[in-house]
Design a protein around this nucleic acid. Structure first.
Lengths: 227, 227
DNA sequence: TAGATTGTTAATCGATTAACAATC
DNA sequence: TAGATTGTTAATCGATTAACAATC
């Protein structure tokens, strides 16, 4: 379940895959400390909350640079920024949403995208009753476009992420068009398995499947999957 | 990003964590072959589609048992069943949904849960207008219950998975109650970060975050995240 | 039998861990 | 300075890989 290969630190040395995979966990935990107003944390505290050993945490952070202070610990805000930057999270990502039925409508109104740094730059449907309607809850407000404008909007906005909230039967066709248009990440809410062209390296994550596996194998653990 | 530790094969030997993490990928790929009517696959074909080397695939499968036939390959349906069984996916999982507003309503109507082996055994809300309403789209139909009945329903149904689709402000309180009631996996749609009691081992996955990381680090790859 | 492909072996590679020197 | 905690070292552990004997 490799997130990245050959990610390069500023110094030029590659960051191990295993380390990159843990960085989002550290980021999340640092966010909690920040909310609580904590200024400084030791590797011991941070590791305990993140569920790793302090040795592993220090080793991981040492690949990014030397951001700690011996005898003191790490500055929560500063470390959080450095990890964010390493992961490429310091800027917003334009997103297109295909399918504005019940689920799609609820998703764009829910605020979960905006609060995570996603900006919805296009919404598409084939239903004439939906096309032309405006979602004023978005900043800025967006109007549902006909699906035929999908490619041109992706090209114009540079959207990198696509959300599929269509019926199952339409999902694969939409997926093909998103891939062809240059989308690099797809969040699929349609209850179907998508395939992408051969040669496209694909990281398939089935959230439902993962939940079941977690519930089965980690009976006493909790998986809080933020969707 | 370990899914399981010390998972035991029938023979009694532990299956390596790295192998368990790849089993869902093989499962997904086998599903695609099955849909296409393919009877037998070689490790080479399967590995190519799954994005691993054939040596790694054979090594992984050897931990589960000897399910292949030398000179022939693997029976798609049989191997798929064996992996499913290993992952604990051969039976249904009871799910409770907390929050039946726009998003919760859309989720229970969408069919994505049922098609993945989740059975919704309880829906909860605090809104008097929603309590008592019945969702006939479910099999069997379910009636929205007051939140006060959350614990008793979890105990009665043995629900292991909870879905949070409440406003952000209510999510943490619901999370606490789910954990206390013995829920082992939480799918959180509220746009907030949840924390669980110290000592609870927690696997945090932020789907939004993962999408951003994928889009940033794997510019030419597609991540079809099935939500 | 001959060709094909698995399951396993052994060597290589990378990740984890504990201990501690460096240093705030 | 004395106490605390980082960043790094070196040894251990586990995962990956390529080659091939086993066998359908």
């Amino acid at each position: 379940m490799t997130l990245a290969r050959g990610v390069r630190a500023r110094a030029g040395a590659a960051i191990p895959d295993a380390t990159v995979a843990r960085l989002p966990v550290y980021l999340r935990v640092l966010g909690v400390f920040l909310e609580r107003g904590v200024i400084t944390v030791s590797s011991e505290e941070l590791a305990l909350t993140a569920g790793v050993t302090s040795a592993k945490l220090r080793k991981d952070l040492s690949h990014l640079g030397t951001y700690g202070t011996r005898g003191v610990g790490y500055d929560v805000g500063y470390l959080r920024f450095q990890i964010s930057r390493e992961l490429g999270l310091t800027h917003e990502w334009p997103v297109v949403v295909v399918g504005v039925g019940h689920l799609g409508h609820a998703l764009v109104h829910y605020g979960g995208f905006a609060s995570r740094g996603f900006q919805i730059v296009g919404m598409f449907d084939v239903d004439p009753d939906l096309i032309g309607t405006t979602v004023t809850a978005l900043q800025p407000p967006r109007t549902v476009q006909p699906l035929s404008e999908l490619e041109s909007t992706i090209a114009a906005t540079g959207a990198a992420i696509g959300v599929i909230a269509t019926p199952a039967t339409a999902a694969q066709g939409v997926c093909d068009r998103l891939v062809a248009a240059g989308i690099t990440a797809i969040l699929n809410f349609a209850p179907t398995i998508l395939t992408v062209p051969e040669g496209t390296e694909l990281r398939q994550v089935d959230l439902g499947l993962e939940l079941q596996i977690l519930a089965f194998h980690e009976q006493r653990k909790v998986a809080a999957v933020q969707a």
